[in-house]
Design a protein around this nucleic acid. Structure first.
Length: 756
DNA sequence: TAATGTGCGCTTTTT
DNA sequence: GCGCACATTA
């Protein structure tokens, strides 16, 4: 995916290929498709049948290869409806579809599926989910909903929750689901206390999801995989629709995705995957890098097509990035090169603090603007979202327009989640998470005690929770004012449901507005001051979002109703990706995480926060694999830049309210000095401290100064190490100094030495 | 039951 | 620095 059309170097000779193809005959299309491609690109585009792996380094034109290959297949007479292209984000899918449509004569792309893995699975399950226990209106739970469901499941099962956090349990469950193990299967292999507890929690959690007619992100994949395995007729149908499969970002697929792809491809064996092991950055989400490394073993007779030439970045940037990534031990040898000019060196900046750093980023962008580069071709990348605030402020002060790319930010707001919960409950009354969420929002007197009563009634009678609420007043479970309130609540929802079945898809936005009004949700969030007014504005924004939602008629559904549209809208909202919010046409500098930047390119890029504990992140420093993934993350960031790259760190940084001294990222020392210019903005006193201990940056402080050892500190004297903890900015050691008392120091800074 | 106050703990990346 | 869980008061 390309960020924009701005391209001062005309870095690629192939960009104009599509322009000559409009309305041309098939033969002309054919010629135009390969015109201007390199030999390697042409080989990939012209690849026809059989499995193929395209090893596409950064900037090697992989999106072009995929789109032109699709067009090529169609020009060869392959029906678009037999081509399935899967990407990582909706944005990438949309972009790819657009490009293909531009390459083909008008209307020829009909029936082509270009989608993300998750939305492809969701649409498969909408249609065929019954045999894996999903009804059409099923809800898709995000991590917040997952937490709620897990808590409810654990509570209902009477399991103790101390010692484990919902997040860690969910991470474990996610890992199990990626391995495609059901609760029963996992229980068989669970032997120790922890895994047996997880097995129980997993089983209960799945019960809750099943009762709620809901699935989480992992279920979308897992249930599709199991559907393909167990239902021969659905398998045959989907295989037939997938005569040619193209997978983008193959290095980031997990086991479940591998199984789905392999099953779909097993009939026709036309699996064409594109990826780069050096850009695998989702290992923490279950991505399995061996999928791409062992592609040839998995698919006999596979063709491997390397695209090594970088058409994006100038030579200095490529040299810097390559110099970094060669430090990864677990990687196939790969040559990264460019024929482009040397260009300017990578600017390495050591700043005083995060404000200084942000100002330097602003200065960098102002300089690039003077060089004729528009703001939309500039980006700041960082390891975590929390770093965006300071950058935003600084850019705003300098009058530099900027936008933070975070697709889910809007839908993370409480009032928006509440609103969405209403619609989820309307399309799926079994959705317990949504029901619990809004049963008393706005407050209508149905508090926790009432909910618990009805819950007990549901458990005893076998009713679904929603039905139990509907029956409770009549059954005398809830009485008086509360009973009336429950009746009114249920009746309100039922009237909305009748509307959903009677009205047409075009009424979506109006309906959304009506529900917000009649539930009085807008009034409820609006009472109060300025912040509350903003919440109301957000709800209005939700109505606008619904208005902009394009409901695409599904040829399989003869009479789409408003219900169909609500369902489709909810699905699109659930599967939104952070990167989807990226819009290069806004004329602003882009701020986003390194993860979200994958697949994009910009003339000028600043990567900030190159500090030990931040990049590499402290949570990634326990294993070599995780550390290598952090290195790949920086590699991805650096290779986004076409002509100017700045990477920076700050000597001191405030993280969640606490200012801390930092040390430079070890990655900085891996970047070859013949590709960089270094500027140190810190006072010389600090420099002495930070330049000296380079030698032991690589060594594990825990090994150097283990708990119990005696150390000497230049100020506090001799003491004994009591405790070590890794954290932001390095390793903290609690040391009991003789005559001074207990002090906590950052090992990397404190210039400690061992004494016997 | 609702609204407000207080203390505690955690702390990345995201479909 | 923030959000969540729990406690207190009307």
């Amino acid at each position: 995916m390309t960020s924009d059309g701005y391209d001062p170097l005309d870095l690629s000779a192939t960009r104009s290929a599509h322009r000559t193809s409009m309305g041309a005959s098939d033969a002309c299309v054919e010629a135009a498709l390969v015109d201007g491609l390199t030999d390697a690109q042409r080989a990939a585009v012209l690849h026809f049948e059989g499995p193929a792996l395209v090893l596409a380094g950064p900037g090697s034109g992989k999106t072009r290869v995929i789109t032109q290959r699709i067009a090529h297949l169609v020009s060869q007479g392959v029906k678009p409806s037999q081509i399935l292209a899967l990407t990582f984000t909706n944005k990438a899918a949309g972009e790819m579809r657009n490009r293909v449509e531009r390459l083909l004569p008008r209307g020829l792309a009909g029936g082509l599926i270009v989608s993300t893995f998750h939305s492809y699975c969701a649409s498969v399950l909408r249609r065929h989910g019954a045999s894996v226990g999903l009804q059409a209106g099923f809800s898709i739970y995000d991590s917040d909903d997952q937490k709620t469901a897990l808590k409810a499941a654990i509570e209902a099962a009477g399991l103790t929750t101390s010692n484990w956090t919902p997040a860690s349990v969910l991470a474990a469950i996610s890992e199990i689901k990626n391995r495609l193990l059901t609760p029963e299967e996992y229980a068989l292999e669970a032997s120790d206390f922890w895994s047996r507890s997880i097995a129980k929690a997993y089983a209960r959690y799945q019960d809750t999801l099943h009762r709620s007619n809901a699935c989480d992100f992992d279920d979308l994949l897992m249930k599709t995989a199991s559907l393909l395995r167990n239902d021969a007729s659905v398998r045959a149908l989907l295989q037939q629709r997938a005569r040619f499969i193209l997978l983008d970002e193959y290095q980031d697929t997990n086991h479940a995705q591998f199984v789905i792809a392999a099953t779909l491809a097993s009939e026709h064996r036309n699996l064409f995957v594109v990826g780069d092991p050096d850009q695998s950055i989702y290992g923490w989400r279950g991505a399995d890098i061996t999928n791409i490394l062992e592609f040839e073993q998995h698919f006999a007779g596979a063709v491997v097509l390397p695209l090594g030439e970088n058409f994006r970045s100038t030579a200095a940037i490529v040299r810097a990035a390559d110099g970094l990534i060669v430090h990864n031990k677990k990687r196939p040898h790969k040559d990264l090169h460019t024929a482009l000019e040397e260009g300017e060196r990578v600017r390495v900046l050591r700043c005083q603090d995060e404000h200084d750093e942000a100002d330097q980023v602003a200065a960098f962008f102002e300089e690039r603007l003077r060089a004729g580069v528009p703001y939309r071709s500039m980006a700041v990348l960082y390891r975590m979202n929390a770093l965006s605030r300071v950058l935003e402020d600084s850019l705003r002060r300098k009058m530099i327009p900027s936008i933070v790319v975070r697709g889910t930010a809007f839908y993370d707001r409480k009032e928006i989640k509440d609103a969405i919960a209403y619609f989820r409950l309307l399309s799926n009354p079994r959705d317990e998470v949504s029901l619990r969420r809004i049963v008393n929002v706005p407050t209508r007197g149905i508090g926790p005690t009432t909910v618990r009563k009805v819950e007990g009634y549901a458990a005893g009678s076998g009713y679904a929770l929603f039905d139990a609420f509907a029956m409770a007043p009549g059954a005398g479970i809830v009485k008086g004012k509360i009973g009336e309130s429950v009746v009114a609540f249920i009746e309100l929802l039922r009237s909305f449901q009748r509307g959903m079945d009677a009205r047409l898809p075009g009424d979506l936005a109006d309906f959304v507005g009506e529900v917000l009004k009649q539930t009085k949700l807008d009034e409820f969030v609006g009472r109060g001051g300025v912040e509350e007014a903003e919440r109301v504005a957000n709800l209005d924004e939700l109505v606008s979002a619904a208005r902009e939602f394009q409901f695409i008629d599904d040829p399989d559904i003869t009479h789409p109703t408003l219900r169909t549209a609500v369902c489709a809208w909810l699905e699109s909202v659930a599967l939104i990706a952070d990167a989807d919010a990226f819009d290069p046409d806004r004329g602003s500098v882009t701020l986003m995480t390194l993860h979200a930047a994958k697949g994009l390119e910009f003339d000028s890029v600043a990567v900030v926060g190159l500090e030990h504990g931040l990049l590499p992140h402290s949570r990634s420093m326990e294993s070599d694999d995780a550390l290598e993934e952090e290195r790949r993350l920086l590699f991805v960031g650096m290779t986004r830049a076409q002509r100017a790259l700045m990477i920076s760190s700050a000597v001191s940084r405030q993280v969640r309210g606490v200012r801390q001294a930092t040390i430079e990222s070890p990655f900085l020392r891996e970047i070859p000095s013949n590709a960089t210019t270094v500027a140190d903005r810190t006072p010389s006193v600090d420099r002495i401290v930070y330049d000296e201990p380079e030698a032991f940056c690589d060594l594990d402080p825990a090994e150097l100064f283990p708990v119990g050892c005696s150390v000497k500190h230049p100020i506090f004297g001799v003491g004994k190490v009591e405790f070590l903890a890794r954290g932001f900015g390095g390793t903290r050691a609690r040391i009991a100094f003789r005559g001074v008392g207990i002090k906590t120091v950052i090992v990397e800074h404190a210039r400690l030495s061992r004494v016997q």
